[in-house]
């Protein structure tokens, strides 16, 4: 790229100009995102002092038993278990992970045909209208959308009264307060996040490759399996990560759909941070949740690395 002749070299080099321009946004993110996340990490290895954090390094917020430090400097008699040693935290973590995996699988599997349809079967001029239609529900109040699912699946809800009205069932189905209900609600909430990356990947596929596949005698389905699907895996992988990572920290759905009876890890983080005022343990649980998500994501990426090779 040639620099125009009369261009005043006002801010100097490319790097300096770029850095200067991005610095307000970057500083904002460093101060209000990177620093708080780093603080969470530091807090998780400090001692809890009821409402304060005492800068005394230890790992008991993760493993073993911890004692909070009292105002007079002595240790509290009643200890608490670290995040990895506490069976309750372990149960909630396993449940959150299970819900996230189920939601991710459901969302991505249900979304793929939709992305495929919009990319391959819709006229070019109408594609953005379809995408717009798909994203609209996503932009409406999350709390209300989650609550509406409660209205749909409750004992006297839409689905039960519909099925009873048609005399398909006599007794209402028990759907509220179940993990399945949470999975449906979350799969609904994250739908566009799964559809859009897959759509983008499908759009990039050279259509002549598909014709070549069929010219060489493959059936349409075989062409899909051997050409389209592998080429769209980058989108599928992106969709998996973009659904899986935020889902594990969902807070509203366990409260509204689970009725508070099936808490997830986010509810535990809230409880420790606010109600129990144990910020050290709360931080340790938050860090552990991110570790679990990060680990699963890395394993998933490693399993799919052959699809990512040679791209980007």
């Amino acid at each position: 790229m040639s620099e125009p002749l009369k261009r005043p070299r006002f801010w100097g080099s490319q790097a300096a100009s770029g850095l200067a321009l991005i610095s307000p946004t970057a500083l904002y993110a460093i101060l209000l995102l990177a620093a708080p996340l780093a603080a969470t990490l530091v807090y998780s290895v400090m001692t809890d002092g009821y409402l304060t954090i005492i800068p005394h390094f230890q790992l008991c917020n993760y493993i073993g038993e911890c004692h909070s430090q009292l105002a007079d400097g002595t240790q509290s008699r009643d200890g608490y278990l670290g995040a990895w040693s506490d069976p309750i935290v372990r149960t909630l973590m396993a449940r959150s992970l299970l819900v996230s995996v189920l939601v991710t699988a459901a969302t991505v599997l249900l979304a793929y045909p939709v992305a495929y349809f919009v990319s391959f079967n819709v006229e070019a001029s109408k594609k953005s209208l379809w995408l717009f239609m798909i994203t609209i529900p996503f932009w409406t109040s999350y709390v209300i959308r989650v609550f509406m699912w409660n209205v749909m699946i409750s004992r006297t809800g839409v689905i039960n009264s519909f099925l009873q009205g048609l005399h398909i069932i006599t007794d209402p189905l028990q759907m509220s307060f179940t993990i399945q209900a949470m999975v449906i609600t979350l799969a609904h909430a994250y739908a566009p996040f799964a559809i859009l990356p897959i759509y983008v990947a499908l759009e990039k596929i050279d259509r002549s490759l598909l014709e070549a596949g069929q010219d060489l005698g493959e059936t349409r389905f075989a062409t899909f399996l051997r050409v389209t699907l592998p080429l769209s895996m980058t989108g599928v992988i992106a969709a998996v990560l973009i659904v899986f990572i935020p889902t594990i920290g969902d807070y509203v759905t366990p409260n509204l759909i689970g009725g508070g009876k099936i808490p997830m890890i986010a509810n535990m983080i809230e409880k420790q941070m606010l109600k129990a005022d144990n910020r050290a343990l709360g931080s340790a649980i938050a860090v552990s949740a991110m570790l679990v998500v990060g680990l699963v994501s890395v394993v998933f990426l490693a399993l799919n690395r052959r699809y990512l090779k040679g791209q980007k």
Partner: peptide, 23 residues
């Protein structure tokens, strides 16, 4: 830097909110 700026798109909101709250 762009990675950090875009991070909230995937970061669980509860973790972001709690970290910010504590700080």
């Amino acid at each position: 830097l762009m990675g950090l700026i875009m991070l909230p798109m995937v970061l669980p909101e509860i973790i972001m909110a709690m970290a910010l709250l504590v700080v």
